[in-house]
Design a protein around this nucleic acid. Structure first.
Lengths: 223, 223
DNA sequence: TAGATTGTTAATCGATTAACAATC
DNA sequence: TAGATTGTTAATCGATTAACAATC
């Protein structure tokens, strides 16, 4: 039996290349900025400029989603924005749990960027008894041993790991076991997950080291 | 006149592919973890497993840096770690300014991952009068109009932008103008910089949207 | 010498870019 | 019709992976 993806107006969803998917949020931001500026219709040149990419790449990326422009005219900002949102699945509310309520966990819990984009932080979890029971961003921090019950009971599909490296793999395993399908980790270490789970890793120290590399080259070559 | 890079034991530095550079910090972390576990010699298989990459890829990456293994034996952890550190230019202390001391800026200022890797946060800067003058992580927050003087006067080479999207490009321009060569931004928008400046962008909302995409596919295809 | 594992080559794969025919 | 701009094709480029000769 062949699988029939839920196929709307565009030929949405089927094999969009990873590199394209990674750029879609940037296009969405650029479209939002255009909307705020009152721009109704845009071109691949203008939109690409705003998103910081090549116009050819933008058109190619959008072509994977469907045909949402008009030749000789351009793209209608509101319509394209909606379509990109559909592809990213932003119509559905996704419930998020944040594990590790240190400095970073605090900042994340208070970050408005979640709610703005259809993500609801439904629980905060920490291992330290001193932190459990405190209120952060309007939520009471819960103990680590409740993690499984929280994920299963509240329909959490995405877990954010903001713990030290040492505990991260255990937290990850617990999240996966409980049924989370996406993980965003800030812990500085590689995480092992089954194929069906998606991991995105943000590592500030690594980013700085990459910058340091280029700085060092510059110095060494005397630029 | 041909340019001669400062060339040490290995043929370090010249044209290391960007994709390889981006993985080096992960190798360094994996090597540190091995050191902590008391492992003296490792193989491409073991190290790759720890770093979450393919062994062939690891060997290829390392081959761009030089020849730091022994056939039939493997890699000496301490030596390889040192060499990767050299390539990343971690021997040199790099001075960092953080602009935007909100929740995230706070967390970054208190993040120990900077100092651990040879980065010194030498100044915190914010636009809001209410924040200026307060002490965060042992540093007094300074006003935005001092940014240029700070960068020039204290030898800052890397700027971290943790402001809202609206102010980010202006801050970026000021940093570049003052002589910063690397920028790490957390602001959700594309930044325009001259070619000689390196930008790394971390965007939590984008990461979540990418996770949402995969979650949506999974749901749509009935997995 | 036999066994192990690197460093490198060659093959594959995916991503980017330029060019242009289709079409508004 | 003339001008503009998309969507797509084809060419280029870079990254990944497998395989293996070199060598410890």
């Amino acid at each position: 039996m062949a699988i029939h993806p839920t196929d709307g107006a565009g030929h949405t969803g089927r094999d969009v290349p990873p590199a394209t998917v990674a750029r879609l949020p940037g296009y969405l931001r650029a479209l939002d900025a255009l909307t705020e500026d009152g721009v109704v219709t845009t071109s691949s040149e203008e939109l690409a400029e705003r998103a910081g990419v090549n116009p050819a790449q933008l058109r190619k990326d959008l072509s994977f989603l469907g045909s949402y422009g008009r030749r000789g005219v351009g793209y209608e900002v509101a319509h394209l924005s909606e379509q990109v949102g559909v592809v990213l699945g932003l119509a559905t509310l996704r419930r998020v749990v944040i594990v590790g309520i240190g400095n970073l966990g605090h900042a994340l819990a208070n970050y408005s960027g979640f709610a703005d984009r259809g993500f609801a932080v439904v629980a905060l979890v920490d291992a330290a008894p001193a932190v459990v029971g405190t209120t952060v961003a309007g939520l009471v921090v819960e103990p680590l041993d409740r993690l499984t019950a929280i994920v299963e009971g509240r329909g959490v599909s995405i877990g954010v790991i903001a713990t030290p490296a040492a505990g991260a793999q255990d937290v990850c395993d617990a999240l996966v076991e409980a049924g989370v399908v996406g993980i965003l980790t800030f812990a500085p270490r590689a995480l092992r997950v089954p194929d069906h789970v998606d991991v995105r890793a943000v590592d500030v120290a690594s980013e700085l080291q990459i910058l340091a590399f280029h700085d060092a080259r510059r110095t060494a070559t005397g630029a």
